[in-house]
Structure formats: structure tokens, C-alpha cells
């Protein structure tokens, strides 16, 4: 192999290094046992996390050449330079993935499910709107059969949820079973922002009226 160190900047197609020495990370792809960039940006090398070995019992058969020993190469798109100071360059678009915690707004509810628009995925504000579904069985972990959607969500609520499945062609399936997941911001029928009272109640501070929700535990 001719290249000893990968370049610092890369553009799509550029050779980064042999696959025998690096693992492909985000923004790269494999072609003929070499790593190539697939995005424009800066190249980062992440060393593998050590000290995994001895502490762990061998319960599973791992693939022969332990891939974790190789450093990971990734290409991250450059953030814009100081040309537009007030506005930060939008991050590269990401897709919601299974396991991600997302913020979403409830669009409509039916007895079976709540339809939501996913607005934020992890720390990234999404430019496009992806549709998600919180089914009645995914609202909370206990007493699943007594969950009523209209006692958990209302249209307009902002909900923190976890992606549990890629879902069908249009919807991601989301879940709010964990304690820290659920409604984080809601407006009462009178139009005031409500404060959480318990895990299933919110209160309108002006009128003192309670409304039912699956409330997220404040962090």
C-alpha cells in the first residue's frame, strides 16, 4: 500500500486507506478492499475502545478477525466557515434510526395510535419531516391493555420518544414506555402552557385544571 496516512480532507471517491488497516465509519465506503470517502469533509480516525477483552466472558462466537481492533475512519462534513456568523450551517441530514431518541409533535390521534411528526433526532434538527406512529401498546410499559391514547397524547403536544422500528413505508414506530419518555411540552385547552404534576397529569397554571397525559419524567 502506497498511502501511509489518510488525507485530512476528502471528497467523494477519494482513496483513504486499505481495509486491512481501517474500519469504515460514517461517510466512507468500501471498494475493492480499499476505503474511499463518500462525502466531502474532514477525515477523522477513531481509535478502538480498549479494555473490552478480558472482562467479558466469551459467551458468543465472534467473527474471526476481531474488527474492533482496527481504528475507524470517518468523514464528517465541514461546518461552514465564519462567513455567516448568525446562522450556523445546517447539519447534514440524518435519518432516524432504531434506538434514537427523537422529539416529535403529535399530529392526530386515533384510538389505536398517535401519529406524530418527527422534528429532532438526537441533537440534530431535521430539515425534512418524517412521520412516526406511537401505537397504543407502545405508550407505557405497565397496564398496557388499559392505555387510552386520548389520555396520553393530544394533537400539538411535543413528545420525546424512542425509535423502535423502521416501520412501514411511511411511518417510523416509536415508543414512550421508558420513564423519561413522553409528553414534554403541552398546551391546555385554554391555550396555556402546562406544567407536569405527576407521571400522568399536567396542570394549567392559570386555571388550575388538570389534563391527562403520558408525561415524561423531567431530566
Amino acid at each position: 500500500m502506497t498511502t501511509t496516512t489518510p488525507p485530512t480532507l476528502a471528497i467523494p471517491g477519494q482513496l483513504l486507506g486499505p481495509a486491512s488497516r481501517y474500519q469504515p465509519g460514517p461517510g466512507t465506503h468500501l471498494h475493492e478492499s480499499n476505503l474511499h470517502a463518500s462525502l466531502v469533509g474532514q477525515v477523522h480516525i477513531t481509535q478502538p475502545a480498549r479494555a473490552l477483552g478480558p472482562a467479558k466472558r466469551l459467551t458468543k462466537i465472534t467473527p474471526a478477525p476481531a474488527p474492533a481492533e482496527l481504528p475507524t475512519l470517518s468523514v464528517t462534513p465541514a461546518t461552514q466557515l465564519a462567513s455567516a456568523p448568525s446562522r450556523e450551517k445546517k447539519k447534514r441530514e440524518v435519518l432516524p434510526e432504531v434506538g434514537n431518541v427523537v422529539l416529535c409533535r403529535v399530529i392526530r390521534i386515533t384510538p389505536r395510535q398517535a401519529v406524530v411528526a418527527i422534528l429532532v433526532c438526537g441533537d440534530t434538527v431535521l430539515e425534512a419531516e418524517w412521520q412516526g406512529l406511537i401505537r397504543v401498546q407502545d405508550v407505557r410499559a405497565t397496564e398496557k391493555d388499559r392505555v387510552k391514547i386520548y389520555e396520553s397524547f393530544r394533537p400539538g403536544d411535543v413528545v420525546r420518544a424512542e425509535v423502535i422500528s423502521l416501520g412501514d413505508q411511511t411511518n417510523y414506530y416509536l415508543s414512550t414506555t421508558r420513564n423519561e419518555l413522553g409528553v414534554i411540552s403541552a398546551v391546555s385547552e385554554a391555550g396555556n402552557t402546562m406544567v407536569p404534576v405527576s407521571w400522568k397529569e399536567l396542570m394549567d397554571p392559570k386555571s388550575g385544571l388538570m389534563e391527562l397525559r403520558k408525561v415524561a419524567q423531567p431530566q
Binding site: D123, T193, V195
Partner: peptide, 17 residues
Amino acid sequence: MAGPTISLPAPIFAKIS
């Protein structure tokens, strides 16, 4: 003020409310 219990980074706040 939305959600006194939570504080969100500005871009996320801008997006959700």
C-alpha cells in the same frame, strides 16, 4: 416560556416551538 422543566439548545427550541 415553553416547558419550564426543560431547557433545550436554541436550534431545537426553534424547531419544536
